[in-house]
Amino acid sequence: MIRSARWVDRIDLQRFRFWVQLTAFVLLVYGGYLALDLGSQLPIFSCGYNREGRAGVCYLLPLQHQLARPWTQLFSFAGIGLLTGFATFLLWFIVLNKGWCGFICPLGTLQDWLTAIRKRLGIRYSLYGERTFNRLSWVKFVLLALLLLIPLGIGGGFWSHDWGAPFCQICPGRVILPLFTGDPEQLTVDFSSVGTTLLTGGGMFIAGLFIAGSFFKKRFFCFFCPMSALHYLIAKPALLKLKKEGAKCTKCGNCFNVCDMEIRAIADDIERTEIMTDDCTLCLKCVAACPEPGALKVEFARINIFEATEDGFLKRMNQGAPRDGSKP
């Protein structure tokens, strides 16, 4: 048991994550061809517009459709469907917490691949300043509020159904993910009304922003992701937890330096034990980069499954170096 725990703590997280992400991407984007269907309450951007290949549907799509039902229905029998849908989403989410973002989300994986291309090309990445970071952190909550309120307004008769599923219309996942199955149908602007023109036109523009932004900035879109905001709001009962023991932290800053989301609190905050913030994607890079034994750890149902160790840190830092100590 101890040996296996020690083996896990020494794992090459980067390689492990790459393969998990690749497998998840293939399953979610092409699984439909193998009749794989995980339902329509997934806590990730497995895009429903990828009609042929999808193995499941992002929960935000049915959520917006359900909220757009007429209020007379929504607050009667249709409300049951909404609640059961949310319960299913919660059950999916509760297992991996935000680990869905860091390991499974196809759109997150795409961003990581764009980052990998940039690294290969030797182009340096961009960072937000602290002030910009704090300002941008709110955007996803605003988007989440709009995502909920606009469909509710449609159901109440305030807006036309042309504004239906507003977030999906501007989501880069709708435009980009179907391309992986050879479906370019979402590369259009729908001129049938003012609402659809603005939303689909905005969607195309944001898709362009997404590609360039993700190329230069790690996990560019995750700062604005309303799914991430929704995750954070319901993260309390989740089984997978990122924990920190402030007493063991030396504030070396490794965790902050490797964090794709530039979360400063991971290094600065030595008070809280549950250190996961709203922007965190639970990629666990911080744990892998931490040299202080037990300072950062990952628990699943209160069982320690991966923690920072000096041994693991040294192994990962020396990855690729010759064993005899000579310079590579």
Binding site: S126, L187, F191, S192, G208, L209, F210
Partner: peptide, 29 residues
């Protein structure tokens, strides 16, 4: 759908978004 959907305008906006963000990052740097 061909009566109200446009690929050319869609692609134009996508490229515009790409150029805009790319230029903004370049200018900032």
């Amino acid at each position: 759908v061909a009566d109200y959907e446009s690929y050319s305008n869609g692609l134009m906006l996508g490229v515009l978004g790409l150029l805009f963000s790319g230029s903004a990052i370049g200018w900032f740097r």
